[in-house]
Amino acid sequence: MQRERALSDYKTYRYFRPSELRNPHKQLASFFEEEDVESLKSEINDFFKTACDEAYEYGNSLRYPATHQNCFKLLELAYTLKNSNENFTLQNDHKLYRSSDAVFTQAFQENIELLFPLVHLRLLSAAEINDITFFLSEFFEYKSLYEWHELLDNLLRCANGDTVLEKIYNRSSHIILVKEYVEKLIEAMYLIYQTKSINYKSESTEGKKEALSAEIENAIIEYLRYFK
């Protein structure tokens, strides 16, 4: 059985320093304060399509390195949270608890408007949403952290035109499955952000507001002093 590397082992992580992952929720809150979940999915789709196509580039090719980096961030945060033994189970009265996998079909048939943030969770199953640990465990059983790093590096190489992904992995079905895993990872981390990490964003935002208010107050005082 392969031994999981300790958080202190710097080689495990390619983007974050171990000290930055002592509070992964703070990092996740900061991430989704800057990134939009649907834009991430769209960029991943373009990233994969370009990596698989010798002739065309999809989306904004200047964004490929940023997409690669965003995947690394979410990957390493997911790995840290998966190994944290934190309880991610949603109670059945939680607003994001899902009782059925048919929620989107039902909404379409009955013309029900799905509210934010539920509308962003389209790929995860009800069981995965209600306890995201199931998905995180499956994700890292499918590939180790090192293998995910290697795959993302190969994606960037292919998107830059060095080679084509199918020449590395040979099976198109494998690539389709990998793409779905990465898209589900985005949803999984967004779910954790909404249920756990968003409190850190609130604290950060309040801190910025207070700092801005103090700055404005000082500016007004200086302004009035100047015209005394």
Rank of each mutant, 00 (worst) to 15 (best):
Q194H: 07
A66C: 02
A188W: 00
E138A: 08
A55W: 01
Y64E: 06
L21Q: 10
L177F: 06
V37K: 05
S19L: 07
K167H: 07
Y142H: 13
L121D: 07
R14Y: 10
F88K: 01
R122M: 12
E34M: 11
Q69R: 14
E138W: 08
E4G: 05
S204M: 12
I129N: 00
Q69C: 05
F227I: 14
L118S: 15
K208M: 13
V164N: 09
A214I: 05
H94G: 08
E43I: 00
E34I: 12
T105D: 12
I129E: 00
R122I: 13
L90K: 01
P65M: 00
Y142L: 13
Q194F: 00
S61L: 12
N111M: 10
K201A: 11
K95H: 10
F48E: 03
A51S: 15
D101G: 12
Q2S: 11
N154S: 14
F108H: 07
K167Q: 08
L62C: 02
D153G: 09
E35V: 05
S84V: 01
D162L: 15
N170S: 13
G59F: 01
K208R: 15
L115C: 06
E54W: 04
E38I: 09
Y13T: 04
Y169G: 08
F88N: 04
F88D: 09
F227Q: 12
F72S: 06
S19W: 02
L124I: 14
R3Y: 13
Y58C: 04
L7N: 12
K82C: 08
E43W: 13
R225M: 12
A126E: 02
C52F: 02
W148H: 10
D46G: 03
V37F: 03
T12A: 13
N83Y: 03
E38H: 06
Q27D: 02
S99P: 03
A66P: 02
F227R: 14
N70V: 06
F88I: 03
L74V: 06
S100F: 01
